[in-house]
Write a protein that binds this DNA or RNA. Sequence first.
DNA 1: CGAGCGATTGAAAAGACTCAACCACCGTGG
DNA 2: CCACGGTGGTTGAGTCTTTTCAATCGCTCG
Lengths: 229, 229
Amino acid sequence: MLEKSHKHITCKNCLSRKDSLLCSMTGEDLEKVDSSKSCSYFKKGQPLFIEGGLPRGVFCINEGKVKVYSRGEEGKEQIIHVATSGEIVGFRAMFSGEPYSVAANTLEESNICFISKDDFLDLVDTNPNLRNGILRELSKELADRASFIKNMAQKSVRERLAAALLILDDIYGEDFINLSREDLANFVGTATETLIRLLKDFKDDGFVTTHVRKIEVLDKEGLIRLAGV
Amino acid sequence: MLEKSHKHITCKNCLSRKDSLLCSMTGEDLEKVDSSKSCSYFKKGQPLFIEGGLPRGVFCINEGKVKVYSRGEEGKEQIIHVATSGEIVGFRAMFSGEPYSVAANTLEESNICFISKDDFLDLVDTNPNLRNGILRELSKELADRASFIKNMAQKSVRERLAAALLILDDIYGEDFINLSREDLANFVGTATETLIRLLKDFKDDGFVTTHVRKIEVLDKEGLIRLAGV
DNA sequence: CGAGCGATTGAAAAGACTCAACCACCGTGG
DNA sequence: CCACGGTGGTTGAGTCTTTTCAATCGCTCG
């Protein structure tokens, strides 16, 4: 269970680091980060940063989930990404020199470390491995978003929901998918009511089942077929 | 007028370089590029690279326009970006170590230079300015695509068309927008017929006019209003 | 001059959205 | 312990946008 404290999490012992961009860092650099970062416990729904705000550093998720989203004119959120343990959030704006183009909020209680802009940029400058990792990461995200755009443009809501459930199932791993219907709709890019109706169809067809608000994927293969590879 | 030859274009004299990522390069590096790059004339519609292909270098547009796109299951293209003079195309895949996730074709006859992967990565490694430029560029594109996703998800086709026309008007500058209806539809993310009908509406309302297939924007302010800021 | 492709129009159908009402669960406070 | 209020989830009905399919038009190039 997650500890509700602001206790310092030592990078060296951070289990999430294994899957992280920071995994390539050596003892020395790691210690530098360790000494300059701060760790915080976030309640569910708290903001890490807001759209238009000025970036002051990056957030490293030790444990928990974070939604990255942007708001449309009428205030409707579009969720761009759901980040989980080991991911670094908010480093895009470190390089662009612009305000955040997206916002980020916790989706559940989380332990998250903060590394200041200066420290982070310093690391990137002096550590070629990290630098290459960042370039690779940015590139991958770019590819992801291109396919996201394509899916939005060409797939039906039903197909997008199937694809979204597969992605989320991966992110939530052992756990059931745990998002509000509204967040899920904002990830798929549809109205909440439409989402609920389609989810019901999926339940009727045995692809998923629900535990109150949590969603359990029962038939990945089926969803893959529905999503139209 | 554009010269139909494969004549070498000297980087130092390249007018497009002013707006380019490469603009920060010094004489020495510039000469290195100059000696190793190759310049080609492309006819309209020729591919620079295809989805799934292995990246072997980057393309620098001296003159012309290039569409960057990805194909859906039924073969429908989604145009992600229209690149013009001064832009470098295909550098994302240089860093990801993966095959191209998108394809690129010329939209009109173009003069385009090619820099091999090794030379390019070498430059990036040794030139901090270029490196930072790349990071900034990748970050900006990431932000662009986030807003692209949001628009796809939340805006009507009419609003997206208005927005697309504004973007294209910017890209085409002095010239009229010159895209097939199908390409335009694939950029907006709609069916060709729908695009034509909406374009007709815009004409009736005096926002644009057409010269055969070319589109002239008459009322930017109006389009901005239509696009729903 | 004819072929062919891109552009355009029409009509019908489908998908998705909106609005409105209702339900169910949860925590609060009396 | 229970009534209450609130939020999030669900359902129904009607509407509208957008798509699809089919047919026609009109350049442009051999």
